[in-house]
Design a protein around this nucleic acid. Structure first.
Lengths: 114, 114
DNA sequence: TGACATACCTCGACTCTCTAGGTATAATAT
DNA sequence: ATATTATACCTAGAGAGTCGAGGTATGTCA
């Protein structure tokens, strides 16, 4: 994690839902994709991801199914539900409002440091 | 707080330092300014702000002094130090990297929902 | 004089992420 | 053959950060 990891708080679920909105994925894959797509800014730990997935499943935002990989290994895929898509929409908007608010505050700070 | 409050985690210190980079301020004032400048997105609680200010002071990022308000009341003003300005710079960059990374992930999500 | 806004502070609860373990299988190296 | 590494999943407890709810005190206004 390049940036202060505590910044991740509150966005982890948003990121997971966003990944799943394109196609079904399994846990290990999501971690790798987050790392790659964020240019190594996010290194989401397994201890963070798996509990999030389990919570989302309990809430009905995602559902899971097992599928064998070409290698023969069993993977647990997650699929986002309609409820999950609505949740994603809500969290996306929250993120937008939040980040714009932070930028508004920062815009007021000493320009000599920009 | 309009947005999920857990998003604030990790940015609270950045916001405080940013406010102080323009001019010295006292606690109660910072809460009001954050609320106003962020269009009511941030409602930083006193239980959040004061411990942050005390920690920053311990670290030498800010220093404080008492000053009487025109009303006669005593206010505790905080002044950002050079060390604090460097910390602000660091945290600003962390925020930029982080928010760009989140946006990169979101950009990959289902465009039909955008 | 009572109510309210200002102004500061702290403690314990809560939420979220991470550390550090654990299990098991497949691929690769020795 | 066998050891090691990568894959793939999981959980319990620790730690960090914020909040709720309380406390104290002063100034203003009805």
């Amino acid at each position: 994690m390049k940036a202060d990891k505590s910044l991740l708080t509150g966005s982890a679920t948003l990121l997971v839902l966003s990944l799943l909105s394109r196609e079904d994925k399994y846990g290990y894959q999501m971690i790798a994709e987050l790392e790659a797509k964020s240019d190594h800014t996010f290194t989401m730990k397994e201890g963070t991801l798996y509990p999030i997935l389990h919570t989302l499943e309990k809430e009905g935002a995602v559902c899971s199914y097992e599928k064998a990989a070409p290698t023969g290994r069993t993977r647990k895929y997650y699929h986002i539900t309609k409820k999950g898509l609505r949740l994603l929409d809500t969290k996306k908007e929250e993120w937008t409002i939040f980040s714009q608010a932070v930028n508004a505050i920062l815009a007021g700070s000493d320009p000599a440091l920009a």
